[in-house]
């Protein structure tokens, strides 16, 4: 279980540009939930993920995982139990290394990186099998440098790499936003498949309202650092894209746009 308690987050504290994003923000995510997060730009979606992953600090409040306070745990240490896929397909892989080398690195997550052989040849059939699930033909390109793959291929690989070792949380930061509609569809289906198969607690930020409605079992809509919709189970299943769009418009009117 992941829990944010009374989080305060300011940007540019102490300057004239000080901006309060979160004030007394709390959120609880149960094990096995697949949470879609939507909201306009600047509503705090990505900041929420960054706070959970430790990429940014909070001014006040605490973050708990299974009752353990991780507020002051360093970013890299938190990733022992977190897998993360970024919006930029280049962020999740090492472009100068081959697919095989990238997978070997990911496969070793959670273990020591000492002087053992970097590539375990015995694992190659397993890598090929995993790659063939992507249906992108990457299983025959093990020795190709990742930098020469397309954005969609790289994102699929990044998704595979981030979920290769046992993790508890999968953090998806608009991971289909930089892809063409068809590739985005493939990646989204793949994500759902992996999340179901590995029973991952997932938080997905997306601007695609249809994905937010179709996938996952809980939906959050954020606005100015608050959750204005929090629907789970049947309530979530009943939500449609129109409902979300309607709410978006209401907010815009409130803001005077």
């Amino acid at each position: 279980m992941l829990e944010l308690r009374h989080i305060d987050k300011y940007y540019n504290p102490g300057t004239v540009n000080e901006m309060c994003l979160f004030q007394d923000f709390s959120l609880k995510i149960e094990d096995g939930e697949f949470v879609s997060v939507v909201g306009s730009n600047g509503s705090g979606k990505t900041s929420l993920l960054n706070i959970i992953c430790g990429s940014i600090d909070v001014e006040c409040g605490q973050i708990f995982v299974d009752g353990r306070d991780i507020t002051h745990m360093r970013e890299y240490a938190r990733h022992g139990r977190i897998g993360r896929v970024f919006q930029n397909p280049a962020a999740g892989t090492s472009p100068g290394m081959t697919i095989l080398e990238n997978l070997s690195l990911a496969d070793n997550k959670g273990k020591h990186f000492f002087l053992g052989r970097g590539i375990n040849e015995k694992r190659i059939p397993y890598y090929k099998e995993e790659l063939s699930r992507l249906r992108l033909g990457l299983e025959d390109k093990l020795d190709v440098k990742v930098g020469s793959l397309s954005g969609g291929q790289r994102q699929a690989l990044a998704l595979l790499m981030s979920t290769m070792t046992p993790i508890e949380f999968l953090i998806l930061d608009e991971h289909t936003a930089a892809l063409d509609p068809k590739t985005a569809e493939i990646i989204m289906e793949l994500t759902d498949e992996i999340v179901r198969q590995k029973h991952l607690t997932t938080i997905m930020v997306t601007h695609n309202l249809r994905y937010a409605v179709e996938y996952g079992n809980r939906l959050l809509m954020m606005h100015e650092g608050r959750t204005i919709i929090d629907a789970a189970g049947e309530e979530k299943a009943a939500l449609g894209v129109e409902d979300l769009l309607g709410r978006f418009n209401e907010i815009s009117i409130e803001c005077g746009n």
Binding site: E75, Y76, A77, R78, H79, G80, I82, G83, R84, F86, A90, A91, G92, T93, S94, P95, G96, M97, E101, S104, L105, A106, N108, K109, G110, F113, G118, I119, S162
Partner: peptide, 17 residues
């Protein structure tokens, strides 16, 4: 290999914990 990844993409190293 982790050293090479560090120069290539520091963020990947962080996500590898």
């Amino acid at each position: 290999m982790l050293l090479r990844a560090t120069g290539d993409n520091e963020r990947l190293v962080t996500t590898l914990a």
